[in-house]
Nucleic acid binder design. Sequence first.
DNA 1: TTGAAAGCGCTAACAC
DNA 2: GTGTTAGCGCTTTCAA
Lengths: 341, 341
Amino acid sequence: MTLKQLANELGVSVSTVSKSLNNSSEISHETRLRVQAFAKFYNYRPNNIALSLKNKKTKTIGMIIPEVVHHFFAMVVQGVEQVAMDRGYNVLISLSNESFEKEVINMETFADSQIGGFIISLSKETLKRQDYHHIHQTIDQGMPVVLFDRTVPEINCDQVVVNDEQGAMLATQHLLEQGRKNVLLVTTEDYISVGRLRTQGYVKALRNAGIPLDNSLIIKTEDSKRSDIILPALEEELKSALKNNPEIDAIFTVNEIYAAAAMRVIRAFGLQIPKDIAVICFTDGVISKYASPPLSTVNQHGTQIGIEAANMLIDRIEQKEISTDAITKIIACEIVRRDST
Amino acid sequence: MTLKQLANELGVSVSTVSKSLNNSSEISHETRLRVQAFAKFYNYRPNNIALSLKNKKTKTIGMIIPEVVHHFFAMVVQGVEQVAMDRGYNVLISLSNESFEKEVINMETFADSQIGGFIISLSKETLKRQDYHHIHQTIDQGMPVVLFDRTVPEINCDQVVVNDEQGAMLATQHLLEQGRKNVLLVTTEDYISVGRLRTQGYVKALRNAGIPLDNSLIIKTEDSKRSDIILPALEEELKSALKNNPEIDAIFTVNEIYAAAAMRVIRAFGLQIPKDIAVICFTDGVISKYASPPLSTVNQHGTQIGIEAANMLIDRIEQKEISTDAITKIIACEIVRRDST
DNA sequence: TTGAAAGCGCTAACAC
DNA sequence: GTGTTAGCGCTTTCAA
């Protein structure tokens, strides 16, 4: 069913039908109702493609994330989809798979029209290279972009980030409050902004508590998808750490996987959680929830981040006035207390 | 940059430019190259919306799944995205959140043009109601649909399913081969096709081994998103099962969450895994992988399913001949052996 | 109050 | 070998 067909059936012009359906006051109440009734009867639905072509914009959000088989990112997707749906937008998803090249290609693909704006979390490779030309380029073309989680401050666009530093402080403080004295930190190399910030939070919490920093209590893991390689390596590091520092009574890891590795090592040492060693980690996902004992975590509110990001983007897409300044929303973390601490 | 602008710059007509860029043999080699060089120089990219309007079809796949914060579905999304990308398609994602109504609305939204075909996994509510009018309607309109995982045979369209029965047989056999005699099954109510099929597989495996079916060894859980309610209930059931049947020496669950519950109960009884009770479950996700001990699982090859589904759909979208018969692809399951069995 | 016509960017049948 | 034109479905200006 098209406007034309409706017009023919009704014996009026296309423009009359169009205006009627858009409730234009130009059209008499009478014909307006007649047309609307007719349209409803024939189950007329406007062709969004034609609309997009006409309006030179689409109600579609392009979302580019490193991976989707990942609790946090999946939560964000869920949040984005939820508000997109509510506000009449669609969500186009594309995975960079942590590759810079794929990220660039995906952006170009999306930019070939059909997208109203982007919601992006940068790939690890992009962060490592510090090459953001594709993002800058998109923004320069006037396309709204919202960055979340894996962001960099030098890109001038709206951002939604978790307060990683605060979350790490919270986690460390939580351990200290339980009377733990020697907290082992398992984190990533510093080029991952979230890893760096979490390390900072840990350091700050110790400083606030007047505890001197002991670098032998920080393990920085090379972050990689090859978990079959890095995890055994990490477990070795953990083992020697526990051996060299028998006074370690708590472990704080920047993700669930590292926490799972820590638990395995703790158990291999015949130690008990939380009696001998308490464990807490970033990401309140299924691994923590269903571990035994269930792990205390730092919840990053992924869904909330998705909601905020989508709302910011759509606001930006629909806003009439030209570019107000970029906004950075910081989402606070929260400790989820379970049995491991 | 549009064709028109290019044409003006070059001093030729729009159609010449169009044909040149499409490598039409109508155009002389010379102008063709000139136009192409020019287009490249100006970084011309065709407007996909205009193309879609013209061709009355888009290179977009609409994917509707119950949830994305779920290992299996996320794997499928990954597979779909991968082949979509390779074959020049985009993936529009929408979540039914296990709601019939949302599923219907999502389909209608997508059907408002812009979609070339659907990849769908039915919501639990839809399966419960057995109301598939929205799917039938879409198919009747000539829109290609591929159903995966949560499917029903009465819908006449391409389907990709896991061989749930075979997977369950494999798992049960695996336990029996380890010398286990009394395998407790934790499954869902029968209206969930996958739950029913897995139950069947369990029953068959027992029959093949000449072991009489003991209905007190089957727990059927009401499947619901309210895991805070059903899990404690399930744990109670598990406890009484273990109490009433102390000879239980293995547990097979149809998902990871139930397995996590089982592990908790086993531990509460002071029993050891796998020494006293072996555990195996469907879904080779992170819960199993990072549990201690790591769980043996039935791998459903989610990514593979996504790949197959996307390829089938795109083949269908691009196929010239009119409807060959619907194909059902059955993906075999595979046991992933870990320390719990 | 209604309708004719142009145009969004592109392709393709047809004319030159 | 190249150009003109109509048309995909819609909105919107302008004319009636």
